[in-house]
Amino acid sequence: MYGRGLKPLSIASVAALIGAFALVFFYAPLDADQGFIQKIFYLHVPLALVALGGFVTGGVYGIKHLRSGSREHDMKSYVAIHLSIILGVATLATGMIWAKASWGAWWVWDEPTLVAFLIVFLLYACYQPLRFAIEDPDRQMRYAAVFAVIGGAFVPLCFMSVRFAQAALVHPRVLDQTGGGMPGSMFFTFLVALAGMTLLFVTLWKFELSSKHARAQLAALRRRVASA
């Protein structure tokens, strides 16, 4: 069911990521200010954007679950949030490495973008413990969906508030009208890396959904065999 199309999707993800990393190291020019260290940008920013997109996707499926009561939508929401937390860990780790190399510190507390991402990440870090603290499956799904919807709405609000903040921003801006002031070759490489990361997210999402579906079917089969 969920495994349909997984093979071509996996091949496309690997090809897009290999292509993106080849462009990063052999095509994109060196940044005038930061030099070689800026190559982390092509990994860190797509990871962050896809993680945030995954949180919002979890919220969208949360709404679908609340409207339909469908277990399938709950599972899609859960897996999207679960994967986004993993990508969030990678975003924080790569961001800290970049910060250390670029700013000389692993973390800068007065930079709103970093703190906003950390708040979002910590919010979602509570999702799984809260979800599995509820034993009744229907209540668990309903409460998890409410969390996903509120969290999903909080993500864009949080980052819009950072944009509107009048703080002295150190963190570079990519998603503005000038494409972060990047030359075309850099922006193209970034877009390919973003596409590759999105494909990887969708592939892993389908992969995990397929695994969970197989496990649920196996449990149902075991119950039927036991009662026969």
Partner: peptide
């Protein structure tokens, strides 16, 4: 933001970031 790091030093950070992801 400080001046760009030399390639050998920057390379270690870049490699670390990509290895974390991998």
């Amino acid at each position: 933001m400080g001046p760009a790091l030399p390639l050998d030093e920057a390379g270690a950070y870049v490699a670390a970031a990509y290895l974390v992801f991998l």
